[in-house]
Amino acid sequence: MAKLSLLVGFGAGYVLGARAGRERYDQIRRAWSQAKEDPRLQEVAGMAQAHADSVVNSVKARMGSEAPN
């Protein structure tokens, strides 16, 4: 019974997903393109990149100072 429920659920999800597939995909792509050009998102991405760079540099400095000679 559990397998039958799983198969029915999978089948329904597949049919509904296929029906909305291309339209939904295009909608998500348009939203991503608009968000990608948003200056607020670019600012946050720049801050995240700067933070990641500082963490990487910190880890590199620690590994360099703790490495055996």
Rank of each mutant, 00 (worst) to 15 (best):
A2E: 07
A2T: 08
L4Q: 00
L4T: 01
S5H: 14
S5P: 04
S5K: 14
S5E: 15
L6Y: 11
L6V: 14
L6H: 12
L7G: 08
V8I: 13
V8T: 13
G9C: 03
G9N: 04
G9H: 02
G9T: 03
F10R: 11
G11N: 05
G13F: 05
G13W: 01
G13I: 03
Y14R: 12
Y14V: 15
Y14K: 13
V15S: 13
L16C: 09
G17H: 00
A18S: 13
R19T: 06
R19G: 02
R19E: 09
A20T: 09
G21T: 01
G21M: 06
G21F: 07
R22M: 04
R22L: 08
E23D: 15
Y25Q: 05
Y25E: 05
Y25R: 05
D26S: 13
D26T: 11
D26P: 07
Q27K: 08
I28Y: 07
I28L: 12
R29M: 13
R30D: 01
R30I: 01
A31M: 09
A31I: 11
A31T: 11
A31H: 07
A31D: 08
W32G: 03
W32F: 12
W32N: 12
S33D: 11
S33C: 13
S33G: 13
Q34Y: 02
Q34D: 10
Q34F: 06
A35H: 12
A35F: 10
A35V: 10
K36A: 10
K36D: 08
E37I: 01
E37G: 02
E37D: 06
D38H: 03
D38S: 06
D38C: 03
D38I: 03
P39R: 06
P39K: 05
P39L: 08
R40I: 08
R40C: 04
L41Q: 15
Q42V: 04
Q42I: 06
E43C: 02
V44F: 12
V44K: 14
V44L: 14
V44Q: 14
V44N: 13
V44R: 14
V44H: 11
A45H: 11
A45W: 10
G46R: 15
G46W: 11
M47N: 10
M47R: 11
M47S: 11
M47W: 08
A48H: 07
A48L: 12
Q49P: 00
Q49F: 05
Q49G: 02
A50G: 06
H51Y: 13
H51T: 10
H51E: 07
A52K: 14
A52P: 15
A52M: 14
D53H: 02
D53F: 01
D53L: 02
D53R: 06
S54R: 04
S54P: 01
V55C: 08
V55R: 06
V56A: 11
V56L: 09
S58T: 03
S58N: 03
S58Y: 04
V59C: 09
V59A: 14
K60E: 04
K60I: 03
K60Q: 04
A61G: 08
R62H: 09
R62E: 10
M63I: 02
M63K: 01
M63G: 00
G64H: 11
S65G: 00
S65Q: 00
E66A: 15
E66D: 15
E66K: 15
E66V: 13
A67W: 13
P68V: 07
P68E: 05
N69R: 12
N69Y: 06
N69I: 09
